[in-house]
Amino acid sequence: MKHRVGQPDSFARLCLARERLRASERVPLALVAREARLSTGELIRRFTALFGETPHQYRVRERLDRAKRLLAGGERSVTDICMDVGFSSVGSFSAWFARRAGLAPSAYRLRAKVRACMPASSAESLVAGCLSLLAGALAHPNYRGRNFEEASSGVLQAQSRATHPAEIA
């Protein structure tokens, strides 16, 4: 990891590429690669090894997360949010969002609103951090107490898998 002072090393350049991909929806990947002093193929390979997803997958996920956050916030119109995340038509935004989130933007917003009104919930648990999920997990019928023998023998995994078939892929 040797590098001259003022010259970002390749790790730093990959971190910068990630910022660049998030900040600007439309900047071509080839340009991001050039700025990182890598070929496009090399950028994709190294980015994926470091961040666990391709630059394109990263961009899509970031965009979706941002749309979800804005929708759950409930202050701005769907049209406004659609423009914010880089779509020019509400129709294409809605179709894109529904394909990835499993429900339409308006339905997503409604669900977030309902959750925020539930007694055990709060603004904090909407953001889901700081172990706030634990309370929800403990209340869930699928939650099983810690059984280390099961955990280590893999029985628990098999049971969990049965309840979440989607994650096997």
């Binding site: 648990s125 929800g136 699928n142 939650y143 810690r146 955990a151 969990s160």
Partner: peptide, 10 residues
């Protein structure tokens, strides 16, 4: 090893 995997909201 996975110990818990329980859906909680989102």
């Amino acid at each position: 090893v996975k110990q818990h995997d329980v859906p909680v909201g989102e």
